[in-house]
């Protein structure tokens, strides 16, 4: 009998989730509806079974997510009987901030980074559990599992604590907090394999289907509602597409695909020659852009 790498990753994630629950007064799980959150939420259900996870779910809603994501989110929380909290930055909304008119940088800053800070402060959360992985992006490769944030939620790459064995140092002072990443050591493929092995339901947008899309800046953007105004010359076309990553729909590029089952999605990924972030506008703003966002407190 030997443990497979997926067994080991699962055990590690459960260990981290339990450490977080035991070490902090007010932890919260950042639920962003995508595949990583799906795996993370399942691990949380498993870590505390037969009890419910001893923390609420928090979704910071920009609110430009795909409608299917929102309905999946609400159905999931209801099916599992969990306390779901949704936070929208209403000030930003009043100012009319949108990814279409302000671009991804401003929109992400106001509706995600600032909004997240608002939500964490309002809930007085001292630990925010997220589904980020180290293999996603270069600057994340050095991220800690327990990532210390100062009173201003800032991440300072030079003052992070060394992490030895699984002896996590979860001590924080007044007003300081921790971001916790149980999926740190998972790859994109590991997440899909875990979803496959555990037969977890995911947002249908991951599977290929005829969807109304517009070609813009070399990407296929799905017109999910009327807020998305067409530019001159643009046309909505029905194309068979799916999404490798999910976010705000005007910022998420679709890929043309026939993969309409989990097995086919995995197969497509195995044959893929580009990374999952290729389809995200948010990372291409400037060189080293994810690192800048992280310092400001973006997840």
């Amino acid at each position: 009998m030997h443990l497979t790498h997926l067994d080991e990753l699962e055990a590690e994630a459960i260990h981290i989730l339990r450490e977080t629950a035991a070490s902090f007064e007010r932890p919260v799980l950042m639920y962003s509806i995508g595949k990583d959150s799906t795996a993370l939420l399942h691990l949380a259900m498993k870590a505390f079974w037969p009890a419910k996870p001893p923390f609420p779910l928090l979704h910071v809603d920009p609110p430009w997510k795909f409608r299917e994501m929102i309905s999946f989110r609400d159905a999931t929380a209801q099916r599992l009987g969990l306390d779901l909290r949704v936070h929208i930055n209403h000030e930003g909304l009043k100012q009319g901030i949108s990814p279409i008119t302000h671009g991804s940088k401003v929109h992400t800053d106001v509706m995600k980074t600032v909004a997240l800070r608002q939500a964490l402060e309002a809930g007085r959360f001292d630990a925010a559990i997220g589904g980020a992985r180290r293999d996603e992006e270069k600057s994340r490769a050095k991220e800690r599992i327990f990532s210390f944030r100062d009173k201003n939620h800032r991440w300072e790459p030079k003052s992070q604590r060394p992490e030895l064995w699984n002896l996590f140092n979860a001590r924080v002072g007044e007003g300081e907090s921790m971001r916790v990443f149980p999926l740190s050591n998972w790859t994109e493929l590991d997440v899909w394999l875990y979803i496959h092995r555990q037969r977890l339901p995911v947002v249908p947008l991951y599977f290929a289907k005829e969807r109304p899309v517009v070609e813009r800046d070399g990407m296929l953007i799905m017109k999910d509602d009327d807020r998305f105004a067409l530019r001159p010359g643009e046309q909505v076309r029905m194309r068979r597409v799916r999404f490798r990553t999910l976010g705000c729909y005007p910022l998420s590029g679709a890929i043309e695909s026939d993969a309409d089952t989990l097995e086919k999605v995995i197969e497509e990924m195995l044959l893929a020659r580009t990374s999952e972030r290729e389809g995200r506008l948010i990372d291409h703003d400037q060189s080293g852009s994810m690192e800048e966002k992280k310092r400001e407190g973006y997840f």
Binding site: R134, A141, K158, G288
Partner: peptide, 18 residues
């Protein structure tokens, strides 16, 4: 990985690869 490191040509922390 990190921007500063890239410019200085040295890496200053533990980085994880898969």
């Amino acid at each position: 990985g990190l921007k500063a490191e890239r410019e200085q040509g040295i890496t200053i922390d533990v980085a994880w690869r898969y």
